[in-house]
């Protein structure tokens, strides 16, 4: 007697978890952040966001969409609906390599890459990312290094990132580092400009218009930061 494939997988599911997963799978409208989309549109200078027709051209053009937990098309819609936490905790934000393929192809002229940057800024300022996620650590360290020295020193930057996130990667990349070093293509020296202090003062004199998430952090930020 043949059992349907669905019946079997269902049965397996039940035994594996030993119970039915009865957690709610949808979000009620009252739980959404209705102001999220406006803030993101403003931060990204992209009101075109609201004209998205959900055609999916961005997801098709994106070279990493098949690794993301939500594709760019979904992210745009989720931003518009106010799924703040899901969006800011998603891998999508940190997998975007800023290749601008989506921005160039979007038939509605939505600057999707800039939307991703706005989301990165929100995720960083609101602590909405895993603390050892390399992409955000890299961005943060790069930011500090340039703030202090005016230039980026690739050697020390990568070293720091690997030490903070995954020292195993440092070992794995040791051979690569040695090869680069012997060919004079990487050094551990810190590059700097002449007047570091003046540049720091210059950079500190301006700031993003909105420190969006500084007020009213959600209760489960700690969970997100694990």
């Amino acid at each position: 007697m043949e059992r349907s494939i669905y019946a079997e997988s269902f049965a397996l599911d039940v035994t594996a978890k030993d119970r039915l997963d009865t957690r709610r799978k949808i979000k009620y409208e009252s739980e959404l952040d209705k102001t999220f989309s406006n803030r993101i549109a403003e931060s990204a200078h992209g009101e075109q966001l609201f004209g998205c027709i959900q055609c999916g051209t961005c997801s098709a053009a994106c070279p990493v969409s098949h690794y993301m937990d939500y594709t760019p098309r979904k992210i745009i819609q989720m931003v518009r609906e106010g799924f703040k936490e899901e969006v800011l905790k998603s891998s999508t934000v940190w997998l975007c390599a800023s290749c601008y393929a989506c921005t160039v192809e979007c038939p509605k002229g939505i600057k999707i890459t800039d939307v991703m940057y706005a989301l990165k800024r929100e995720a960083i300022s609101g602590n909405y990312y895993p603390k050892n996620a390399p992409a955000s650590i890299l961005a943060n360290n790069f930011f500090k290094q340039v703030l202090n020295n005016g230039r980026n020193s690739e050697g020390p930057l990568l070293m720091k990132m690997y030490l903070k996130t995954n020292p195993f990667m440092l070992l794995k990349n040791m051979m690569l580092g040695i090869k680069l070093f012997t060919r004079g293509r990487i050094s551990m020296k810190t590059e700097k400009i002449r007047d570091k202090k003046a540049l720091k003062k210059l950079l500190n004199s301006v700031e993003s218009k909105k420190k969006i998430l500084s007020a009213g952090k959600p209760a489960d930020v700690k969970e997100a930061a694990v």
Binding site: Y117, L138, A139, V146, G150, R151, R194, S208
Partner: peptide, 20 residues
């Protein structure tokens, strides 16, 4: 006396600093 352009990382942390 050129300085770093900011690359993709600066835009991810603070856009106005990136533009400056």
């Amino acid at each position: 006396d050129w300085n770093c352009c900011g690359a993709t990382a600066y835009m991810a942390v603070d856009d106005r600093k990136a533009y400056v």
